[in-house]
Write a protein that binds this DNA or RNA. Structure first.
Length: 485
RNA sequence: GGGUCGUUAGCUCAGUCGGUAGAGCACCGGACUUUUAAUCCGUUGGUCGUGCGUUCGAUUCGCACACGACCCA
């Protein structure tokens, strides 16, 4: 009779009235659980237990009901038999409990004829009323908008969705314990900063009322973690929420989490070795295998991960040797001549950005298995230590997987005089309208001028690696509650 | 910002070569003590995204807009 959303809610409110009329509370205080739903299967036959959960499905047979109750992780079956309950109790459940309600049940563990571990309910109590229906039991939520806006509906009915967030928690825990084992300590650095720093990106701008000063949400924790190095901490890390006011894509989200760590007395070569050991451990712990399937493509993390320079990669993938075109004009002409990039989009790029653009278009998408990319142009890396043999590149690497930059790391620039020069180049770019560029960061320079040990630093996007490990096609799906209009 | 596709019952979707619409599930009522997408019987439920245009008549055709997904920048 009733079937619009509003009517469904009315029906459920009237059922709630049944409960109240029977002297039950529709939203009681607590329930004493001796076990979780997940423990039901492992219980010995005949053991009595109490547990609680959301009603996910009901199968009625007149004087018998099988009910599935569950949470994000587990579900289990309970049965209610008319002759084993007070008659009013049985009828009250039948007439008042809807899919989505929470109930607490006490009874005895037994196994049904079909072999399903089941709690035979002796007593039940009502724990919370759901006034709206759960998603379709078979199709789930197809509406992509609702799937994002009401993630709680997916996680309480779809264990594959819930599993992403369980793996997310596990991933952070594994990363933390690995780093702690290697004597890194976790530092909390400011998310609200006076001046953006640590990456080339657009920021979210805000205002600090108490100080009456404009501020920015951090785009990276880098320069503060380096201040900690200056302060005498030799190994530091942070899982930092970062904010970049830029486009959204399958691999980009404006609010994301980045693990960064810094080790004094290491260089980027040390980090390459450390990265391989750490990520192999992490992947094995989370996935249980060093080969994963991502969107039907195998990604192989076993074996030694190859190391390629920008130059080697571009010779291989685009058949162009950047060293044969030392000037920006020559390189640009060759790229346009070969029709590798659109002439308009590269008209104002410097040589480093041009090489980067070329790499992103022609080479990066085809890198599927983990690959260390080295030899980054200096102008893309204003905080990285310059290479001692080649002034045009820095001691930096990226780990590329599935065409995505997963890790970015480099030997840190400790020289405050060189750092100032790099900032000056950046500041000039800001003046000419580059919103990604950095201003001169006097506060950070002041720290460097007090002396920072040689060090190497490392960063990885949590959502990206998680998307790979959970076979999520879109980075959004790794975020439980992504912002929406 | 550009392109493609989409928007029909609470949910998942059909459909109407232009004559105001159907199924399954859910809901509601009934039968049922071994189901697990339970089954069976019977009801109920729709401004067909919004606006304008063409037409005797538009959910259907056209245009614009909104919202969403995907691709590209």
């Amino acid at each position: 009779m009733k079937n619009t959303t509003e009517d469904t809610t009315e029906v459920r409110i009237s059922k709630m009235q049944n409960l109240l009329d029977s002297g039950l509370n529709a939203y009681p205080d607590r329930y004493e659980c001796t076990h979780t739903i997940g423990e039901l299967k492992g219980l010995e036959e005949g053991i009595t237990a109490s547990m609680a959960g959301r009603v996910l499905s009901v199968r009625r047979f007149g004087k018998l009901m099988f009910v599935t109750i569950g949470n994000a992780i587990n579900r289990g079956q309970i049965s209610l038999k008319k002759n084993e309950l007070e008659e009013d109790d049985f009828n009250l459940f039948m007439n008042s409990v809807d899919l989505g309600d929470f109930v607490g049940v006490y009874g005895q563990r037994y196994t049904t004829k079909k072999g399903e571990p089941t709690l035979g309910v002796k007593k039940w109590t009502f724990l919370s009323k759901s006034l709206r229906p759960l998603p379709d039991k078979y199709h789930g939520i197809k509406d992509s908008e609702a799937r994002l806006k009401q993630r709680y509906l997916s996680t309480c009915t779809d264990s594959e969705v819930a599993d992403i967030y369980i793996k997310r928690a596990k991933l952070k825990q594994v990363l933390r314990s690995f780093l702690e084992k290697h004597h890194f300590i976790e530092i909390d650095t400011p998310a609200i900063q006076i001046q953006k720093s640590g990456a080339l990106a657009r920021s979210f701008k805000t205002h600090h009322n108490a100080l009456d000063i404009d501020a920015e949400l951090r785009i990276a924790p880098e320069t503060y973690l380096k201040r900690a190095l200056v302060g005498g901490f030799e190994r530091v890390y942070e899982i930092a929420t970062c904010f970049r006011n830029e486009g959204m894509s399958l691999a980009h989200w404006p609010e994301f989490h980045m693990l960064e760590f810094y080790a004094a007395y290491w260089n980027f070569e040390d980090l390459i070795n450390f990265t391989e050991i750490m990520l192999k451990h992490v992947i094995d712990t989370i996935v249980g295998n060093n080969k994963i399937i991502y969107q039907e493509q195998e990604i192989d993390f076993s074996g030694d991960w190859p190391r390629l320079s920008f130059r080697e990669l571009l010779i291989e993938k685009a058949d162009i040797d950047i060293n044969a075109f030392p000037t920006i004009e020559g390189l640009r002409a060759e790229i346009i001549n070969r029709n590798l990039l659109d002439a308009k989009t590269i008209a104002n790029l410097g040589r480093g950005s041009l090489i980067d653009e070329l790499y992103k278009k022609t080479a990066r998408p085809s890198i599927i298995n983990p690959t260390f990319l080295v030899g980054h142009p200096i102008e893309l890396s204003p905080l990285a230590r310059n290479n001692d043999n080649d002034a045009s590149i820095v001691d930096r690497f990226q780990l590329v997987v599935n065409g995505w930059e997963v890790v970015n790391a480099y030997s840190e620039l400790a020289d405050p005089i060189e750092q100032r020069k790099r900032f000056e180049v950046q500041a000039a770019a800001v003046q000419s309208g580059d919103e990604n560029a950095l201003d001169i960061d006097e506060d950070f320079l002041l720290a460097l001028e007090h002396g920072m040990p040689p060090a190497a630093g490392w960063g990885m996007g949590i959502e990206r690696i998680l998307a790979l490990l959970t076979d999520s096609s879109n980075i959004k799906d790794t975020i439980m509650f992504p912002i929406h209009r």
